[in-house]
Amino acid sequence: MSDKNNMTLNLKIWRQEGANVKGSIVDYRLEGVSPDMSFLEMLDLLNENLINQGQDPVAFDHDCREGICGMCSLMINGQAHGPERETTTCQLHMRKFKDGDTIVIEPWRAKAFPLHKDLMVDRSAFDDIMSAGGYVNVSTGNAQDANSILIGKDKAELAMDAASCIGCAACVASCKNASAMLFVSAKVSQLALLPQGQEEASTRVQNMVSKMDDLGFGNCTNEAECEAQCPKGIKISNISRMNREYLKASVTAHH
């Protein structure tokens, strides 16, 4: 690919110095954007310019830039991770935009995710949900030979589909209720589908769901925006599976 530095963009970026300071959208004009750049490389270019002018660069989260760590998290023109389906912000490329485009860039917004600075938010609530039950209680050294537990290929594939979640929280950001159901259901589903997860199936789903509620995530009203925006294609059928698991758990809890 040749490096045709030919696009000029009008960026409208949310700037906010800290959690307790008021923020606002600030306009930037950026020249010399190549269609081969990734979205984050475009922001790098903006930041390089800002630094050279002695201004504070825009803070945003990112790390792997390969679409797998779940660190990057931008609302781009009102869509979590931008316009391309099943694509994280870091894997979005500028060829999806046109010369002269206006692009609005905002952070994830949810009560459970307080803002740190500019486009960076605190998603530690997801770790809290995981620590409430997103695991199999097995200590190192306790395991039997891996092939002594057979798992049919179809089941294994379904579990893997659910396990692909990168925990980026695009589902929360794109839901009008800021619900975390897709995230939680992906983990519940993965472990509910596998024999290893059976022993703790009912406590797991109950504890994770109640933690999720405590942390201030909203309810699911079947908008399905989460599925549409999920960069890993996690299906809302996981939510139905979680609801079944939850029901099962509440029924057995009465014994």
Binding site: Y135, V136, V138, A143, A146, A159, Q196
Partner: peptide, 11 residues
């Protein structure tokens, strides 16, 4: 063995 016991969805 350990990873399979944790529920790692190996192929």
């Amino acid at each position: 063995d350990q990873c399979a016991a944790q529920g790692v969805p190996f192929a």
